[in-house]
Design a protein around this nucleic acid. Structure first.
Lengths: 220, 220
DNA sequence: CGGCATCCTCTTTGATACTG
DNA sequence: CAGTATCAAAGAGGATGCCG
């Protein structure tokens, strides 16, 4: 039942769009590599390794090769003095974003009960923040939240009805949240009350009133 | 890096909604099983085997067990005289439909170039028909197309701006299309001209004017 | 260092055969 | 019909080695 395009390529052999999509991106780690490239844009091999804790290095290199052959990933050689190669998505690869958003939207149901020994990377916040959080007071003044919860600080900007996030620090944030990822997520999504979170070890600096502007909504 | 919920369960160990979703539905065949259950509703083990050509029976039984443990699939015992067990999705499982639609929407790009030795099942048409086809003449009279391309005939009903499909035969269809799946898909999506398709072996009965009402559109 | 390739072990998959 | 049992082959995970 192997369509067997190149030898070693395993296909479901079904004339169905879902099966054909899974032929290309259904292998283990593949969609997470796409997630990394979507969130980071062009980046180096080592950056990918950092964003994919647990992946074996040979597997990452193999997947990148396959993705390049399938036309989802492009490999750009950056000339000296940088002298490295950057990996980035092609248009076809970038068009997987709705798939990742749908998967993430379905997967949020598992976020409230973390196993405790899971890894977290700050830039993973970008998807949920833009997908699930809304500014409940579009006419309110702009406000910034700095989140310190993992490898790098993240800034969340609220204002004019929009919510954006980026890696970095804010010069004078209205609020600083510091604590482990499930707690920070819980507070941002209003699923955890601030008082409870503080009992569990959340540290805050500044005014927490901005949190009341955040509206959590899983798109239907 | 194993979250290791039950022993044998392989997790990415990442506190990320996408990774958590893939922990549950990222294994080989899992999403195709969900596709079958979405398209068929409650059905028997053997029906699933028929809709999943190529799956090993032990793997199907194992996946169903896992899906049941994860709360995506329910197993209903039907009492005699039928005396069988039906598999069906729970609400959580059914909520994967947007994921499958996104995957299918991305995967249609591979449909124009079939490898030739792929399997096709008629009920797989239901997703693409409802997702990609629109009735371009909502004020036109109702019309029916009967498609004979695989294991069972399929009826496509066009009318009032809506397009629906179901397995079965129409008493007096306006048009009958008979040929292999890529050709029928090509004609339905207007990617293949009727004259060309006929040269390639497409057989038709009745009036083909209804085809001009069908609008193919990949949702953005 | 960054960017892999190799080697080895362990797990998962696939094909087939068999059972209540 | 609805699975379980068995076994070979493929793939994943981990450690380490190589090379500019």
């Amino acid at each position: 039942m192997e369509g067997c395009y190149p030898p070693g390529m395993r296909s479901y052999g079904q004339y169905c769009a879902v099966a054909k999509a899974l032929d290309v991106v259904g292998d283990r780690w593949t969609l997470l590599i796409v997630r990394e490239l979507l969130l980071r844009g062009g980046c180096r091999y080592t950056d990918l390794q950092h964003g994919l804790p647990g992946i074996a290095t040979n597997l990452l290199s193999q997947r990148l090769k396959e993705l390049e052959e399938q036309g989802l990933v492009r490999r750009d050689a950056v000339p000296p003095p940088v002298a490295t190669t950057l990996y980035d998505l092609t248009d076809a690869g970038r068009e997987l974003e709705p798939v990742l958003r749908a998967l993430g939207g379905w997967g949020v149901r598992f976020m409230p009960d973390p196993t405790g020994n899971e890894v977290f990377r700050s830039h993973w916040l970008a998807f949920p923040v833009s997908q699930f959080l809304q500014d409940g007071e579009p006419d309110g003044p702009p406000a910034t939240i700095e989140v310190r919860t993992a490898d790098q600080p993240v800034v969340i900007e609220v204002g004019g009805g929009e919510i954006t996030s980026y890696l970095g620090t804010a010069p004078s944030p209205d609020l600083v949240l510091e604590g482990d990822p499930p707690m920070v997520l819980g507070v941002l999504s209003s699923m955890l009350k601030l008082a409870d979170a503080r009992q569990l070890g959340l540290r805050t600096e500044g005014s927490t009133t901005v949190l009341r502007r955040l509206r959590f909504r899983v798109p239907t």
